[in-house]
């Protein structure tokens, strides 16, 4: 079991390593303009430097800011999105009214709202978190209501014949039954809020965050820091997806055989 896990991580890391080695060779042999291409070793050094930085924010502080914003945004989006999604899933007439509006707003990229929110509530955290929340809200509300609507009618019957009231059915059957869809919505929400927070940080952050860090580095044509930021963004996302989310799925819907 453990050996298989290690094997899996290795087979994921090996091609990445290969990629970094090729990148390094190209950099060392000066095959392309190294000021623009940088080198993996240089990027690695830069990450260490940025961790130890004393005269400015460390990369850890930048990451922490982005993570905090995403967490708050995702929490708000999940709370509001799930509640509204449940309501829409249960009440057909409300759903029919709101669904076209949600369908229309859902594909609008989060970042498109940013200038509007900057005008409304100014630069910094309020705008970044609001836009992050908005972008995660739509997939969560959509998938939650979809999950509730697609519950097998018979599983509700099988509960109502045992004398369960509506409240009990909602809590013990409809909610766990729509957990696969809710999880999908949550995962989309995580991806969307993370991306949006980083994007809006480029436009509206005044103090920090990974998006702010890479966009700021651009001013000094500091490609190495940009690479460091990009790699860290992917790394953090993969880490959360493959530990926290995977673990959550393994303990619930995967264990119950509701997804393969």
């Amino acid at each position: 079991m453990k050996a298989r896990k290690i094997n899996k991580i290795l087979s994921f890391m090996a091609p990445l390593l290969l990629f970094f080695i090729i990148w390094q060779i190209v950099g060392v042999l000066d095959l392309m303009d190294t000021t623009l291409l940088s080198k993996p070793t240089k990027v690695f050094e830069r990450i260490i430097q940025l961790i130890q930085a004393t005269n400015k924010k460390t990369i850890i502080e930048h990451s922490a800011e982005s993570i905090t914003r995403t967490t708050i945004a995702l929490f708000l989006a999940t709370t509001i999105g799930c509640s509204l999604g449940i309501l829409l899933g249960l009440k057909k007439n409300i759903e029919e009214t709101l669904n076209p509006i949600i369908t229309f707003l859902m594909p609008i990229p989060g970042i498109a709202w940013a200038p509007l929110f900057i005008t409304w509530i100014g630069f910094g955290n309020p705008t970044i978190i609001s836009v992050g929340t908005l972008s995660a809200f739509f997939p969560i509300v959509y998938n939650t209501s979809l999950g509730i609507k697609s519950i097998n009618k018979q599983i509700i019957w099988s509960t109502s014949i045992m004398g369960a009231n509506r409240r009990k059915i909602i809590k013990d059957v409809i909610l766990p039954g729509s957990l696969p869809h809710i999880t999908t919505g949550f995962k989309l929400g995580l991806a969307r809020s993370w991306r949006t927070v980083i994007a809006v940080e480029m436009l509206a952050a005044t103090t920090g965050g990974l998006g702010y860090m890479v966009f700021d580095a651009r001013e000094y044509l500091d490609v190495t820091t940009v690479y460091a930021g990009i790699i860290l963004m992917a790394f953090l996302y993969l880490l959360v997806e493959n530990t926290l989310i995977k673990e959550l799925e393994n303990k619930t819907i995967k264990r119950w055989g509701m997804i393969t």
């Binding site: 087979s11 091609p15 623009l36 651009r218 990009i230």
Partner: peptide
């Protein structure tokens, strides 16, 4: 076997993060 992990990594990078790099 080679492309899949690379793609898994690349897909995790927020697209917008490429923009500062492309700007340089």
């Amino acid at each position: 076997k080679i492309i899949n992990p690379l793609m898994g990594f690349m897909i995790s990078i927020p697209t917008i993060a490429w923009v500062p790099l492309l700007l340089i």
